[in-house]
Computed example of a mutant assay.
Amino acid sequence: MKAISSAETQADIDRRRGRFVPWFIAAFFISFMLPLIAFTVLAFRHAPSEVTAQAYEKGLAYNNALDAEAAQEGLGWKVNGAFRDGVYRVSASDRGVAMEDARVEVWFVHPSVKTNDRHAVLTHSGRGIYEAKIDLPVRAGWSAHVTVEDHGQQLQTRYIFEN
C-alpha cells in the first residue's frame, strides 16, 4: 500500500479513485446495449420466412378440405396418370365407364425451383384417355397435380414421377 504523502489529502485520493467509476458504469451499460441493438437491427433486416401464407385461415378451413375429400371419394371415379416419352397421359373412368367429356388439367411441380413448374390442359384422345405433350425443363422427381372436372364435380389427385 502506498503511503499518503503529507501534501496529498484524503479528498485527492477519493477523486483519483472515483475517476474510473463513471467509465465502469458506462462500460457496464454499453456491454448490454450493443448486443441488444445488434440483434434488433438483425431482426428488422431479416424478416421471418413464412412457410405457409395465411396459415391460420387455412387451418380454420381444414374441415372444409376434409369434407371435400370425403365427397371426392364418394364419386367413384378412378384416375391414373403416367409420364412417358414426353407425354403425360391420364385415364379417367366413372364406376368403370370411361369419362369422355371431362376437363383434365395437370400442374407439374418441380421439387425446389418454382420457375420450372408447368401447366397443361390435356386433350381427349378416346376411351377416357387424356394426354398432352409436355416439355419438362430438367430431370427431377416431379409432382403432377391432376384435376378432373366433369358435370360440375371435381376430383383432384397427385402423382410423383421422375422424367
Rank of each mutant, 00 (worst) to 15 (best):
M1Y: 01
K2M: 05
A3G: 05
A3T: 08
S5G: 07
S6L: 10
A7V: 11
A7I: 11
A7G: 05
A7M: 07
R17D: 09
R19E: 10
P22E: 02
F24H: 06
A26W: 02
S31E: 08
S31L: 12
L34A: 13
I37L: 10
F39H: 03
V41S: 02
A43P: 05
F44T: 14
P48C: 00
P48K: 05
V51D: 08
T52P: 05
T52R: 09
Y56A: 15
E57H: 10
E57R: 12
E57I: 14
K58Q: 14
L60T: 12
D67P: 06
E69T: 11
E73M: 14
E73F: 13
E73W: 15
L75S: 10
V79L: 03
A82K: 11
A82R: 10
F83W: 02
R84C: 05
R84G: 08
G86Y: 04
R89N: 05
V90W: 00
A92N: 03
A92H: 02
R95V: 13
R95S: 15
A98S: 06
M99Y: 01
M99F: 08
A102E: 03
R103Q: 12
R103K: 15
R103Y: 08
R103M: 12
E105A: 11
E105Q: 13
F108A: 04
V109H: 00
V109W: 00
H110M: 01
H110R: 01
S112L: 13
S112H: 13
T115H: 06
T115D: 11
N116Y: 09
N116L: 13
D117I: 03
H119I: 10
H119Y: 14
A120S: 09
V121W: 04
L122E: 04
L122A: 02
L122C: 06
T123G: 14
H124D: 14
S125W: 03
G126V: 04
R127E: 06
R127W: 02
I129C: 01
I129M: 05
I129Y: 00
I129H: 04
I129D: 01
A132R: 00
I134M: 04
I134N: 00
D135F: 08
L136P: 03
V138N: 08
A144I: 00
H145K: 15
V146C: 07
T147S: 10
D150T: 11
Q153F: 10
Q153M: 11
Q156L: 08
Q156V: 12
T157P: 00
R158N: 12
R158V: 15
N163I: 03
N163V: 07
